[in-house]
Design a protein around this nucleic acid. Structure first.
Length: 504
RNA sequence: GGCCCCAUCGUCUAGUGGUUUAGGACACCGGCUUUUCAUGCCGGCAACACGGGUUCGAAUCCCGUUGGGGUCACCA
């Protein structure tokens, strides 16, 4: 009999509590990378066993985030597959079957204490500075006693009888990790309402879905002995494990969704935490992916900026690091800047359109050619947010331009209104300029520079403030051509009126 | 606190006993380019946590200390 090379099957199993977290995205990426590299399958499974934490439509959001990143799944929601359903809430009968098996073999038992009793026992231990470990009852309640209790309305969960022997894990990243089983209590595998806990559902599904490799965050390391013990009790295989370093904020704190609320409360810009935040902030998914691939992994040598194809090619689990990493947004910005400079125009247009749509900008209505032109004029931009702040003035009505007081003061009002005076000259000359094109505008400005013996800035800046309300815009000739003669003139008039009103 | 994991520039990391005056990138500092904002270019600063071993030789191996992190739910 020939032995075919085992096909690797990996999974990402989010719980539907909101958008995809950036740390989760890194976990997805590594799993996806392993599947791509080995010709294996990447499975998406939804761990929705906690109805109280369920957030409306978060599955849709997670799928959208994954799609935006370009990380497709072979099996799972909207993809189907032979070992579904891929929502744990639809697999309750399966978990029940395995729970019964454990109950009947005496490897699990109904635990009769109430949650309140346990909570107070834990509290008491804490007060006395003792560790609390659930005391296994002796004798164990029988199955009949447990069922009878449940039928009478008592909230009775099922606990796993944790075996005595130590558990040794061969981790592909950390190496051998030995844990003492005596440190692990008889944990709950089925809640009182009959739903499985995470540990149990996870172990059952990984087996039934044929998962060969589990790549997950290091925060799960201490769960692993529970999972292995369960696998042994159920007669399941143990998959290969690889625990990934954890990603922290640049100050070393945990990157949590709460950081956003805290920043907003302090009046600061909320940090990007979820994948969706980075999408809204104007990053390109290829840059984000490249950046997070380097958090806990390295291709070796001096290589950093890699396409996803190169990353797949270079990826190996044994190059995953052991030390936790911090997320440095400045470096991400630098990566993004480099990436958008080399992404082809049509792809850039797609990304800019997506950016303007998720931000609900009026720019979203512009056609592809316009967007491409905008991108061209903003060369050197770092994120799509830069493109927005530089060209947003085009999508505002002439009458709605808001003048930045600082800019007006510095560029127009200073030196007895030299800027305003220049605007008057400009207005007359722009009216007769024909044709209205780059060469004409440049020539006109150059001759004005010579005529008034001033530098380019003395002319370009007043125009910029007049037509955009700010000192930020594309090069001045691009700005004017994009706007057109009529709108330029209207805006200059309005700026002059604005100045007169201020002076009065 | 118990158990477990980790430890190279401020940050991400390269480095797997000699090729290392420890390399790259970001940040930072200085300079240049520039009509704004960016971009770009040039240069600079900057690390093997500490203490013991092992070895002819250690950032690389072992032990300890210190420091950081994770985890101890009817959450996942």
């Amino acid at each position: 009999m020939t032995v075919s090379a085992e096909q690797r099957r990996v999974r990402f199993a989010p719980s539907p509590t909101g958008y995809l977290h950036i740390g989760g995205a890194r976990t997805v990426l590594f799993n996806w990378l392993l599947a791509q590299k080995t010709g294996g399958k990447f499975i998406l499974r939804i761990e929705d066993t906690d109805r109280s934490r369920h957030v409306e439509d978060s599955v849709g959001k997670i799928l959208a985030d994954l799609r935006w990143l370009g990380l497709n799944w072979d099996e799972g929601p909207e993809a189907g597959g032979d070992v579904g359903p891929y929502f744990q809430s639809k697999r309750l009968d399966i978990y029940q079957k395995f729970t019964d098996r454990l109950l009947e073999s005496g490897q699990a038992y109904y635990a009769m204490e109430s949650a309140e009793e346990l909570a107070s026992a834990r509290e008491k231990s804490r007060a006395e500075k003792r560790d609390f470990k659930y005391p296994r009852p002796s004798p164990l309640p029988t199955i009949d006693e447990g069922r009878a209790a449940r039928e009478s309305g008592q909230a009775v969960p099922v606990r796993f009888k944790m075996p005595d022997e130590d558990i040794v894990i061969q981790d592909d990243v950390l190496g051998e990790v030995r844990l003492s089983a005596s440190d692990v209590e008889d944990f709950i595998i089925q809640k009182h309402d009959g739903w499985p806990t995470y540990h149990f559902a996870c172990v059952v599904d990984d087996e039934l879905m044929g998962i060969t490799d589990v790549l997950r965050g290091q925060e799960h390391l201490s769960n692993t002995p529970k999972h292995v013990a369960l696998q042994n009790a159920l007669g399941f295989r143990t998959p290969r494990y690889a625990h990934l370093p954890i990603i922290f904020n640049s100050d070393g704190s945990k990157m949590s969704k709460r950081d956003k609320e805290k920043a907003i409360a302090k009046g600061l810009a909320p940090p990007e935490i979820d994948v969706h935040d980075f999408r809204v902030a104007g990053y390109a998914p290829e840059a984000l992916l490249n950046f997070i691939s380097l958090l806990g992994w390295s291709p070796g040598g001096d290589r950093e900026q890699l396409s996803i194809e190169e990353t797949v090619d270079l990826f190996t689990v044994d190059r995953i690091g052991t030390a936790n990493a911090r997320f440095d947004r400045d470096k991400l910005i630098a990566f993004n800047t480099d990436w958008v400079a080399k992404i082809p125009s049509d792809r850039l247009v797609t990304l800019l359109r997506d950016f303007s749509q998720v931000n609900d900008l009026s720019m979203a209505a512009a056609d592809d050619a316009t967007l491409a032109r905008l991108l061209e004029c903003c060369k050197g931009f770092r994120t799509f947010r830069d493109v927005q702040s530089k060209t947003g003035f085009l999508f505002v009505d002439d009458a709605d331009i808001a003048f930045d007081p600082k800019a007006v003061k510095k560029v127009l009002a200073k030196n007895d209104g030299a800027g305003f005076a220049m605007l008057e000259h400009l207005r007359r000359n722009f009216k007769k300029l024909d044709p209205w094109d780059e060469a004409g505008i440049e020539q006109l400005i150059a001759s004005l520079c010579a005529e008034h013996d001033v530098k380019m800035g003395a002319i370009a800046q007043p125009i910029r403030v007049a037509v955009t309300g700010s000192t930020i815009s594309p090069p001045i000739h691009d700005t004017l051509i994009l706007l057109g003669r009529e709108r330029t003139l209207r805006r200059i008039d309005r700026a002059i009126e604005h100045g007169a009103a201020e002076a009065a």
